[in-house]
Design a protein around this nucleic acid. Structure first.
Lengths: 343, 343
DNA sequence: TCTCGATTTGACATCGATGTCAACATCGGC
DNA sequence: GCCGATGTTGACATCGATGTCAAATCGAGA
């Protein structure tokens, strides 16, 4: 019933080992023989058994993606799709594991649970990429991993990122050039280092323009629609003077802020300019469309997959051996839409 | 370096087979011996190798979840999280595979690509659960599968659903009881049978109340924010009379409709009542919060996982053997929030 | 034609678990 | 004290691929 490598070998008149060589694109197979074997594989619709493969060789053809679910948003969706697509192109499969850093021992438990899977590598997007217990356990198990935009501890492992600082700086410049002088900021998750770098970029750009950051207008947020709404709602409920622009550390919060403004009878951008970060899909289709900073999230995570698949980076890249950890920086881009205008 | 079942056996002074029995909770092991083995497993931090396991036994401890990515929304997120959680509880892992029905041969390709994984079963949420080429290929491969809310072909396989028809009927009743007589409807994906059942429930409830459905107010949609926005935008741009309430076939479209209404200077629910379906997270946190119909999506998909894991349903449940395909119907609930009121 | 070295191929062991089946231990009933 | 029935345990084969290493083949140069 089920076709094995033996069946293919028999029919092609070669040994199983030769079929294996063809499957894995190894050298030392006569082109003509290779053709024959490929034809038979096609004819029998043979699919190698992953388990046999994983058992006998070192690779599992499995990549892990660890995510923190409550913050699922456009960003997390892009991450996932990018990884999924690249894995498929390379003949790998993706195993997704949610981890809640707030649950004691969750990281250890998850790493243990995938230990039997012998993953070829793990991808850690924010905020897990800065979650120390997780990193420690992964390193202890000797697993290869790549972080996405960790924002700190840059030499610890391979990573892919954009220059968050420069991007936030540019966005702030944009608001200033529009004529804003009173600019508020909604922060991201405190433990997420990239969030801090966005704020740093904002602050520096303000200082460089000779503007002061009003601490009352710097509000906490958790990267969700809900917290963006709450932050703006709280800000707009106050009696005192208000900013003319609000820089939200991501798009979901910007969307929330737009909603909250409306609750207070304010329209973006006429009464308040609101900008985001990430270029999430919803940012394009909401009303008004959100001015934001595009991150090539899919490309970033695709590069992460490439790194894990590439034998060059396979084990502990940059840990031993003294060679520096690969660090890939991809370009960002300001996307001007209709949620920001001159005050 | 890596701990195997042999190491555990040796240290516990038993045979590997006995350790295996303990691992799989088989009978015929003296309680005391079982204790000893469990203690050693703990001590050595032993994790069974999935590949060896999958190779020698029939199970893979892997469940597949096929999704159609462009429609990722609150609904798809809930599906995924529900599956992920339940899999973890049961010691299974989830392999997610995106499929685009519009790409010729995509379904076949994906099924082939997971053929080597020997999945214990596959979960098909909408809209893939009614995508014929995919179903055909899955059945051809003899894989077990469970559909979520297929809305048609009910005896073909195991499935989990809510009574979409009754739920839409109840929502429509709710609007009528609020005093609405002119009600519009934004449809879901045409190929998605559950969408048709929602519309059917709407139509019947209208007829039962002696109200006519104005065909000009029944608008096409694709379950996305964007298409909900477009539908409402188009409707509200017209010269003629307008409905006082709009029933959107899911929450993402309701959110889009709220945005579009605002673009036309209308506020929900004062100027137009807008209701959704699904109880997506964003429905709770938007402004105004959306009145919607709660589907226990996480429970539904968790039940689907249970069915696949339960040996009772393992292979071709309901195909051969003559026993009927299991069909699980879970309860829905109207969630009244602030996007609907008396006209 | 023969030889040496490089290339191509296959025999066999191996990965780490579980299935099968036979051997052994235990127990109650006669 | 013996018997069969039941419960417990382990020896060994097996799943389907790849790694190792030796054998076979090929080709060029003498």
């Amino acid at each position: 019933m089920i076709v094995t490598i033996k069946d293919v070998a028999e029919r092609a008149g070669v040994s199983p080992k030769t079929v294996s060589r063809v499957l894995n694109n190894e050298t030392h197979v006569r082109p003509q023989l290779r053709e024959t074997v490929l034809r038979v594989i096609e004819e029998l619709n043979y699919k190698p058994n992953m388990f046999a493969r994983g058992l006998s060789s070192a690779r599992s053809y499995l990549i892990g993606l660890f995510i923190y679910d409550p913050y699922w948003s456009g960003y997390a969706t892009d991450i996932q799709l990018g990884a999924l697509r690249r894995c498929r192109e390379l003949g790998y499969h993706l195993v997704i594991e949610p981890i809640d850093p707030h649950i004691e021992g969750a990281a250890e438990q998850v790493v243990d649970s995938v230990a039997g899977l012998r993953l070829d590598g793990v991808i850690l997007p924010p905020p897990l990429c800065t979650f120390e217990p997780l990193l420690a356990r992964i390193e202890e198990m000797g697993m290869a991993y790549v972080r996405i935009s960790p924002g700190q501890d840059m030499d610890r492992s391979a990573l892919v990122e954009i220059d968050e600082y420069a991007a936030a700086h540019e966005m702030t410049r944009h608001l200033i050039e529009l004529g804003h002088r009173d600019i508020g900021f909604v922060e991201g998750i405190p433990t997420h280092a990239a969030a801090a770098r966005r704020y740093a970029g904002f602050k520096t750009a303000m200082a460089e323009a000779g503007l002061t950051v009003n601490p009352d207008w710097v509000l906490p947020g958790m990267f969700t629609f809900q917290t963006g709404f709450a932050a703006a709602d709280e800000l707009l409920s106050r009696k005192g003077p208000l900013p003319t622009a609000l820089f939200c550390a991501n798009d979901d919060m910007a969307l929330g802020a737009v909603s909250a403004a409306r609750k207070h009878g304010l329209e973006a951008p006429a009464d308040l300019s609101i900008v985001g970060f990430d270029d999430a899909p919803a940012a394009r289709f909401s009303w008004p469309p959100i001015t934001t900073m595009r991150q090539p999230v899919s490309d970033m995570v695709a590069s992460a997959v490439d790194m894990l698949v590439d034998p060059k980076y396979r084990r502990d890249a940059g840990k031993d051996g003294g060679k520096p950890a690969p660090r890939l920086q991809l370009p960002f881009a300001l996307v001007q839409r209709q949620s920001a205008a001159t005050p």
